[in-house]
């Protein structure tokens, strides 16, 4: 409860600073909080913000979902079948070290500028942290607990579902959270580099025409999406982590 008050105070301080900046910086480069609020009302009333948000969210969630459904199972397989993990890990690390933006021209050549290309760009960004963290979680399974399970005669499948998988959950959640953030960044990147649509598209339009109040509205909307997604994941994490005495993971 106290934290909520502190957060509100910090937010107020930020807005204060923002307002101060808007009065000091020349040529209206920083819009005032009030002007931004009015721009937001306008954009919402015209339906532009809603449409852009819907476009962005649908490709974002599309790419992110595919990343989860591929990254988590593959990470678990790599962590439990050691030869598979040892074979693939070097390629995974190589790919994750390559800036994925480098693939965008190639993706456009193959998939064009439409939603498939965007979803692939988002997927490529989100899948790596999910895969790598899930893999680490499966590798990190508590060998003492695994031995205990073997001792009571548990079969491989039960050891996996009741010991290895739950043990990997905190790692998987971290992967999902990092993946969600990178996925959101790649959403904007995709919308800037392929067909200009969605929130990224609005950023390009307002940025290029110096409509800074509108531009700020879009930036804040993106920040809000990020907060909602990571908070939702944190809720899941707390629900799954009831057995912990205190919330150790922030």
């Amino acid at each position: 409860m106290k934290i909520a008050v502190y957060r509100l105070l910090f937010l107020a301080a930020l807005i204060g600073l923002w307002w101060l900046a808007s009065t000091q910086v020349a040529r209206n480069l920083v819009p005032s909080p009030l002007a931004t609020l009015q721009a937001a009302q306008r954009l919402i009333a015209e339906g532009r913000l809603g449409t852009a948000l819907f476009d962005s969210l649908s490709i974002y969630l599309g790419g992110y979902t595919v990343a989860i459904f591929l990254g988590v199972p593959l990470g678990l397989l790599m962590g439990t079948i050691r030869p598979l993990g040892k074979t693939l890990e070097i390629f995974v690390y190589a790919l994750s070290a390559t800036p994925r933006v480098a693939f965008i021209p190639l993706i456009i050549v193959f998939l064009g500028l439409g939603p498939q290309a965007k979803i692939l760009i988002i997927f490529l960004g989100a899948v790596m942290p999910i895969l790598i963290n899930t893999y680490a979680g499966a590798l990190n399974s508590d060998q003492d607990l695994v031995e205990m399970a073997r001792s009571v005669g548990a079969k491989r499948q039960r050891i996996f579902t009741q010991i290895v998988l739950p043990g990997a959950v905190p790692f998987i959640i971290v992967g999902l959270r990092v993946g969600a953030t990178i996925g959101l960044i790649n959403t904007v990147v995709a919308e800037l580099y392929t067909a200009v649509k969605g929130l990224g598209g609005l950023l390009a339009i307002y940025g290029n025409t110096f409509r800074m109040a509108e531009y700020f509205v879009v930036v804040l909307t993106l920040a809000l999406v990020g907060v909602v997604v990571t908070e939702a994941l944190r809720f899941v994490e707390i629900r799954l982590g009831r057995w912990r005495r205190s919330e150790v993971i922030v």
Binding site: D144, L145, W243
Partner: peptide, 14 residues
């Protein structure tokens, strides 16, 4: 066979 481990080895999420 029942094994009582020195380090307990309880499943923390159960």
């Amino acid at each position: 066979m029942g094994f009582v481990f020195q380090s307990f080895r309880l499943i923390p999420w159960s």
